[in-house]
Design a protein around this nucleic acid. Sequence first.
DNA 1: AAGTGGTCTAGACCACGGA
DNA 2: CCGTGGTCTAGACCACTTA
Lengths: 241, 241
Amino acid sequence: MSNMTRFTIRPLYLQVRDMLVERITSGQWKPGSGISNEVDLSRELGVSVGTVRKALDVMEQEHLITRRQGRGTFVNDQTSDDLAMRFNRICGSEGNCLSMDILKSEIKAGRATEEEGAKLRLRAGDPVIRVRRVQSAQAKRVLLEQIAMPEARFPGLATKGHVPHRIVALAQQFGILLGGAQERLTVTRATSNVAEALAVETDTPLLELDRIVYSIDGRPVEWRSAMCHLSHGDYYSVDMT
Amino acid sequence: MSNMTRFTIRPLYLQVRDMLVERITSGQWKPGSGISNEVDLSRELGVSVGTVRKALDVMEQEHLITRRQGRGTFVNDQTSDDLAMRFNRICGSEGNCLSMDILKSEIKAGRATEEEGAKLRLRAGDPVIRVRRVQSAQAKRVLLEQIAMPEARFPGLATKGHVPHRIVALAQQFGILLGGAQERLTVTRATSNVAEALAVETDTPLLELDRIVYSIDGRPVEWRSAMCHLSHGDYYSVDMT
DNA sequence: AAGTGGTCTAGACCACGGA
DNA sequence: CCGTGGTCTAGACCACTTA
């Protein structure tokens, strides 16, 4: 019933959503596994089925779960093909997302600059992890990335040799659920450094991508500044609703 | 109740949504005006309040209505500032959408080319309306647009002198509700023609925007190919969820 | 105080998937 | 066949706005 003292303003179905999200982040519910059915959940939590359904509606929109009539409700594997491409809008001429390979990758620990602090909502000097790498598609160099992440969210990452090249996979490893991202696009010309890394002529026009990825609670998780050299036919895709 | 023969598969709340959308497109409910309250609507349509609410939920996500607790539900004016910027992702350095002015504008009637037919789902040779124009922000030329629209959706537009420079305003004039859009971005260099129109040097790097806008029923309404010259600080903004 | 949308409940039936 | 999520109903109370 929960008819008792309601001091909190947050609606019940959002409180339920918070509890269920916690079960995912804590690892109690693992990606790919099914979760209790709606009736059982409602009994367990002491709320009505309608309230549970509304919580699940929210979580479905947040890409956290998938519901299939007749089968059940399942925790999403964020590394699955469709979800992994959520934050990659670079597509090939056939409309398919480009799957890229890592060419070079350096990882370093450091202290946040003023700019990194502003983007990641840290204080300047807070520990960060930086990655610089080149991604290629079909033997062509496409992306030169400079990434900064708060060390606090990825403890021990700097000492690991391997960093997954997709932010969704990295986040899932550290039990972080991603919410959204904002990307800003501009056009620039390749400086000599950039030109060398991407194997293009100096002054080649490039797409500059400045992206901040947020976790589901709205805190910044990654700041990526990338230079992108698009081959003929490739494009950056935006869907508006 | 509607317990009677249910041959249709489309859920009742979506049928209700369709009926309410029709009231907007037909002009029975005008932008800015309030609509009947949920209880009255449910009685009038012979469905439960919950079903009406679910229909309104959908319409709110489609940007068709705004609900305000204690006040009522209102039909959105698509030309209002926030909604008008829905399909314009070009922002200034302060994060605000650039509001632009029309510098030059030509409108012509014509017959669809193969490419226009493919983009607008017409047959080659079907009547189209074409617009070519330049937009500027703060005295700087920013956009060179080439637009094609199906004449059937905008009867008589070619003979009008004035074309609103925002697709949302134009659509509202002709009773079209817009659903979504897809934009494809690439980087190119200004050809001599483009350079002249935008008052830049030949070979200046430009952002090329290829956009198709769809009406709420999923049919193409406008195909725009634009060349964009971004000033320092301006950028194209993408939000991902 | 009256009227609105927002939340929550309890229970019914339907459509789908798998045993 | 059973269990699942999807739809639909009827009614209660809450929170907000306006008069």
